[in-house]
């Protein structure tokens, strides 16, 4: 009797175990299906299409598989220009934004009157649409009516053709780009600062240092992991600059099509007669660039951690 009971329990056990193998998959399914359909499938498709020459996305016909699209893109002077513009943009936006964010976060971290007001003001860009605010910036950058030139005129500086002169279009884009990533950077750095034990500041003061020296010798090194994180995330997002560019110049790549960025180049390949293969290979070149740079940054960070020096 008891033996049969044991057996039954065993069969029960295997049954529940079979069910328990399927059960987690069922829970995961909605999310996994989403990932497969909207992320994995397109990514794989992009890789495949980038090797298909003369691909027609309606007929799905292509002449042959090969590196033709890559050769085409890498020898395209607009793509080279886009790549160099994007690099300049990233090299200006990320370091400047990091420095400003560090200063702002450090100020917000002090006990300040109206700290709440400042915090709201600084985090506003985060909850606003990039394109809508881009339009607002277009008005602010306006040569004759814009508020920026108004303030410059108070300093007796002649009106700047932010959006109309080729040489001023990159600075305008960079200023807007910095403004755009500041809140995210400030939030993360502020969180990092708040996790630094104030005891270290006291120790440094008793050791005889104060002010800026504490900031550079104690605060910044202790914040290094957070700074590294924001730098990597900002670098990746800035390489994809497009949403900032589009509203500023009414959908053009700068006043004289001088401000091509990689994503704008990709976008343009799809406008008019779609060249899907070229767009795909350009996207993969951008991916490769971002991937290599991120790996480099991680390597540098690891070196930092090992030597313990800034």
């Amino acid at each position: 009797m008891s033996k049969r009971g044991d057996l039954e329990r065993q069969t029960d056990y295997t049954q529940t175990s079979r069910l328990s193998k399927i059960e987690p998959l069922l829970y995961l399914a909605p999310f996994m299906i989403g990932i497969l359909v909207f992320t994995l499938y397109p990514v794989v498709n992009v890789v495949v299409i980038s090797f298909m020459e003369d691909y027609n996305y309606l007929t799905r016909a292509f002449s042959r598989l090969g590196l033709g699209n890559y050769i085409n893109v890498l020898s395209n002077k607009y793509f080279i220009q886009a790549l160099s513009n994007t690099f300049i943009y990233v090299l200006l936006v990320v370091p400047i934004a990091t420095v400003i964010a560090l200063a702002v976060a450090n100020t917000l971290n002090q006990k300040l009157k109206l700290a709440g007001l400042f915090q709201t003001a600084y985090f506003l860009p985060m909850v606003t649409s990039v394109t809508a605010v881009g339009l607002a910036w277009r008005f602010m950058f306006n040569e004759r009516l814009g508020i920026i030139n108004f303030f410059l005129s108070l300093l007796r500086i002649d009106p700047v053709g932010w959006l109309t002169k080729a040489e001023w279009s990159m600075p305008a884009l960079v200023i807007y780009g910095i403004w755009n990533i500041l809140p995210f950077t400030i939030i993360l750095l502020l969180a990092g600062l708040q996790s630094v034990n104030p005891m270290f500041y006291t120790a440094a003061r008793v050791d005889g240092s104060k002010g800026l020296r504490i900031f550079f010798r104690i605060t910044v090194p202790l914040l290094a992991p957070t700074i590294m994180l924001t730098t990597i995330v900002n670098t990746i997002s800035s390489f994809k600059v497009f949403n900032e560019l589009f509203p500023l110049f009414k959908g053009q790549a700068g006043p004289f099509y001088n401000l091509y960025t990689v994503v704008y180049f990709i976008y343009e390949q799809m406008a008019g007669k779609p060249r899907l293969g070229r767009a795909a290979s350009a996207a993969l070149v951008l991916f490769a660039v971002i991937f290599i740079l991120t790996m480099l940054q991680l390597l540098i960070q690891r070196r930092w951690n090992r030597s313990g020096r800034m």
């Binding site: 005891m199 270290f200 006291t202 120790a203 440094a204 008793v206 005889g208 202790l222 313990g308």
Partner: peptide, 25 residues
């Protein structure tokens, strides 16, 4: 006088050694 001027040495309850520096540093 502020702490940096007093010339005192302070040992904290949990030591407060700077984590990013070696012992020598």
């Amino acid at each position: 006088w502020p702490p940096e001027r007093r010339g005192v040495g302070l040992v904290f309850q949990n030591y407060a050694l700077y984590p990013h520096m070696t012992v020598a540093q």
